[in-house]
Design a binder for these strands. Structure first.
Lengths: 345, 345
DNA sequence: CGCGGCGCGGCAAACGTGTGCATTTACCGG
DNA sequence: CCGGTAAATGCACACGTTTGCCGCGCCGCG
């Protein structure tokens, strides 16, 4: 692998240059710029002024080499265009910047090869920590993450098994699904369907479990024909397509309401079914789009931005040597217009 | 500014360690790992194997210090949650990764202070180049960007004046607006309004100009009461709110169709007006949401992802010493269901 | 047998910064 | 005037790589 990029043309000004111009050693300049207490106020002022007028900008890579950390963190998501992640990213970016951390952003597209490439890259770059909102379950993945030997925060990880291995912030999927199903039960629905996805198996399982629990505790039997999980080949076309394809099928099977794994599949069923006329629909996530579709989507809201913020705050704590505890957020029901009371007929 | 992070606990394995274990000098290891031709095949194999089993991962920050570049680029957008940018970011990320570049992502929120902080940060980190999808017009901003002395690519820059100063990829705003207005004229509309924004003044001006040109060339007079630009204080609530507030006003002023500055304001008017019953609406950008609202939005599509890709490709060319030319893309009309033929009454 | 050349690998400097320790300077009290 | 101490600064090494240059063997050829 030869190197395609020639060195930058002009040399930039270093503390060495300032030292020469100021008639001192570079150590003195370093200390003066960092407000080291033992430097006399006079020379400190003088050197800082000199640095300013010479247009000095510290070289973060040299600093990173000497201090043994970089002030960077790696952020990996499955897809940047997934509306769930953009809010998370915003939260992360917000507190990262205010803490002086820079973030390397990468997406993995649920592709194992890319996932390990990303981790490898973070390792090479010597990030101080990583937050992963794309955690595949698994042995090899977890092992890689371990090897780089920095704090890791998982967001809504798909691997329950890793929960005790890494720190995490997550939403309570099961409680969320219970909220959704409970809302529909309260509206008088009895034939309530679940429409899930196959490419986020863990969250899907947990939400399905919540759905089952809600029905059970209301004494409503769950029928297998009212549970549809979009298979991999359908998922390839996207969440919306999955909803479009499977929504009508559930309706025809007699469902009067559908709990969807997320907002995008809910939008999909809205595209092919009369909502809430034929079926009531509740989504999950409360993405921006939920407010703007017609009818506005009843959904389960996760505090996405807050979760991003907390992830970084936990990372900061860990870097500071403080202990942290994983946290699971309680989602909330957001009632809009895609659900209506059951009326027979 | 004292340093909050203690050094990482365990020292990682360096080429020095491998050298010791292999009984050679660290230079030999370095050359062996980089497939330097003058190293004998035997020792090269041996050392590479050794490195592998010792779990060696090259330290990119040390490499960056020595080679005079970092293999990183800075990407700055106004807001990560703006759907326009997420596609751009995806395009950028896609080719950056395949070229082995890592990206620092930052958002500026249209805040001058944050903008310069971001540029400053890129400078400190010694990025090899920056792509800015948040270019404020302006003297001071351009100057800062110049000072860091690396290639800069602007995406849809808001500062026409900078076009010759930096390289850029942009969409032809005026042509896009002409497409939009032309489409409405063809549908028989005559009282066509323009609904713009004040916080992206340049693109707004260019789109407004396109709108005017289309009407003029069709011999339709433009009425001032059919041109509304959402003021700053309204913009603070977001594009959708601006559309919600101003859409009804334009309708009441007699507009039968509205050219919107972008999709989100179009969505806003859809929320408060009967579309396309009372007014036909065309958006701009073709964000994902345009396909899912009711009715699906007729809009002007920009090749966002492609623009992101091209920006990085131009950067790569520049870093390679090749010359590049700025490029302006032609947008295309995407007809969906928010526009209908004019019918009197 | 000697010498030149070549293949292989080591030495050392460099990238820019931080920092422990030694050294200088200044000051002060006796 | 001298010794001592504290304040201010310089020296030198370290962080982990890359790379120009040199040296050492070995081999072949005259």
């Amino acid at each position: 692998m030869t190197d395609p990029h020639p060195p930058a043309p002009t040399r930039r000004v270093s503390i060495e240059d300032i030292a020469r111009a100021g008639g001192v050693s570079h150590s003195t300049v370093s200390r003066a710029l960092r407000d080291y207490p033992l430097i006399s106020a006079a020379t400190r002022e003088r050197l800082q002024a000199l640095a300013r007028e010479m247009g000095y900008t510290p070289n973060a890579v040299a600093q990173s080499l000497q201090r043994r950390h970089t002030g960077t963190i790696g952020l990996v998501v499955t897809s940047i265009s997934d509306p769930f992640f953009v809010d998370v990213i915003e939260g992360v970016e917000e507190v990262a910047r205010s803490a002086g951390l820079s973030i390397f952003l990468n997406s993995s597209h649920n592709d194992p090869a890319q996932e390990i490439a990303v981790i490898e890259n973070f390792h090479r770059r010597r990030v101080d920590g990583v937050v992963a909102a794309a955690a595949r379950s698994g042995d090899r993945y977890a092992a890689r993450l371990q090897r780089i030997n920095v704090p890791v925060i998982l967001i809504n990880d798909q691997a329950a098994a890793d929960r005790h291995l890494f720190h995490s912030v997550a939403v309570d999927d099961q409680a969320g699904a219970m909220l959704a199903a409970g809302h529909l039960l309260e509206l008088g629905h009895r034939r309530i369907a679940y429409l899930g996805v196959s490419n986020r198996p863990k969250s899907n399982d947990r939400r399905l479990a919540g759905y089952r629990a809600a029905l059970a505790s209301a004494g409503v039997p769950v029928c297998d024909e009212l549970i549809a999980i979009a298979p991999e080949e359908l998922m390839a076309a996207g969440d919306v397509a999955a909803g479009q394809a499977l929504g009508p099928r559930l309706r025809d099977a007699g469902a009067t309401a559908i709990c969807c794994h997320n907002d995008m599949v809910a939008v999909g069923v809205g595209l092919t079914c009369a909502v809430p006329g034929d079926v009531s629909v509740v989504g999950f996530d409360d993405n921006a789009i939920a407010r703007y579709v017609t009818p506005p989507l009843t959904t389960i809201a996760q505090p996405k931005r807050e979760m991003g913020r907390l992830a970084i705050e936990m990372l900061l704590a860990l870097l500071d040597g403080r202990a942290v505890e994983s946290r699971v957020f309680q989602p909330t029901l957001r009632v809009r217009a895609s659900t209506a009371a059951y009326s027979r007929g």
